[in-house]
Design a protein around this nucleic acid. Sequence first.
DNA 1: AGCGAATTGTCTACGGGATAGACACTCCGC
DNA 2: GCGGAGTGTCTATCCCGTAGACAATTCGCT
Lengths: 200, 200
Amino acid sequence: MNSDKAATSPRRDRTNDHLKSALTKLIKEKGFHAVTVKDIVDYAAYNRSTFYAHYQDKFELAEDLLTSMLHGLEIAVGQPYVTGQKVYTEKLNVPSFNIVAYIYEHRDFFELIKYGDTLPGLLAEFPQTILKIYREQFTFETINNIPVNMDYFKRYTAYGFYGLVLNWIRQDFKESKEAFIHEVIDLTKTHMYSFKYVGK
Amino acid sequence: MNSDKAATSPRRDRTNDHLKSALTKLIKEKGFHAVTVKDIVDYAAYNRSTFYAHYQDKFELAEDLLTSMLHGLEIAVGQPYVTGQKVYTEKLNVPSFNIVAYIYEHRDFFELIKYGDTLPGLLAEFPQTILKIYREQFTFETINNIPVNMDYFKRYTAYGFYGLVLNWIRQDFKESKEAFIHEVIDLTKTHMYSFKYVGK
DNA sequence: AGCGAATTGTCTACGGGATAGACACTCCGC
DNA sequence: GCGGAGTGTCTATCCCGTAGACAATTCGCT
């Protein structure tokens, strides 16, 4: 059973990462459709054969880039919280809000939303992933327990947050990470009393 | 004679580049003295053995990083000019000033000057390299051919330029690259009539 | 439309670089 | 003076990246 060629290894992962970085950079330079496989391997300093040993074409690479980053976002979100423990928005602070930290740390990638001819699927799947996180990983409590359709509430707050993030990125992170988080926290407090992290 | 192990190859160069990037990033995070070889290989996703196959220790890596970047600066400077052709400062424009473009493109590296515990030798050798470029690659003509000790003139203008660059970097490139170049050009015009690029 | 250049996708054989692991040693915090 | 972490060196193994060829397709240009 160990005769299978390993689908993953430190070396393969590393090479994949470098190819992804190259694609990110090149999309910004010339737009996704204009990027060729040759561009990618030239920039990342690999052989063209190597590329095809990892991906079928640039679309598969693009898909891997997108899903890996959005998956990373899903994983990173819950880290500050204890499962099942209620968090009062009144006491929210910067360190407990590392979904923003993740986006900021990977701003090289998320900046791609600013570009017209950009990573396929990014504009659609980025907000959907935020919604997915709200749906699967959290439960919310409205202020004074005002009854509400929770599915709508999650959609509303998720896309509201997305809108703020989009603006933050489009303004080249002019606002500091901390200042931005405070903005988000302030807005959260206006309609949310507490939330729980319910699992990855 | 070809039995020598190649000191350079695309693969080796690429690995070296990644180790250099890792060191750059880690210096910003924890300061040069606190960076360990283990930190570097962990961050760059290499094996520790690989590091020692490329460098003796982190100091040799640091030296390679420094010299390669400053050498790149030397090479990049002359590119816009034709050897021996006189350039009138009155007609200087942005595209002819790509020493600044080089620094900006590699701002990840040059930002290191902002850090206290930073790359050894950087603070000393960066301005020296600028002076070296002025000395070896250019000849200058003062306005109205006012006589001057040319060695002093080069030192004066080189360090003047260095001062401006330092400030630009320390202010996080707040000024746009183009705006900054215009500043430099304006100042150049105050005391320089023309210059020649005399060789690589 | 039609030519030549560039890119693509696939394949092969080769070898060099990356790997894991062990070892003795130094250094430092507790 | 103990334990943990990092260092520098060394092995043996082998996987991944390499160069190169190939036909097919697309692109840029007139």
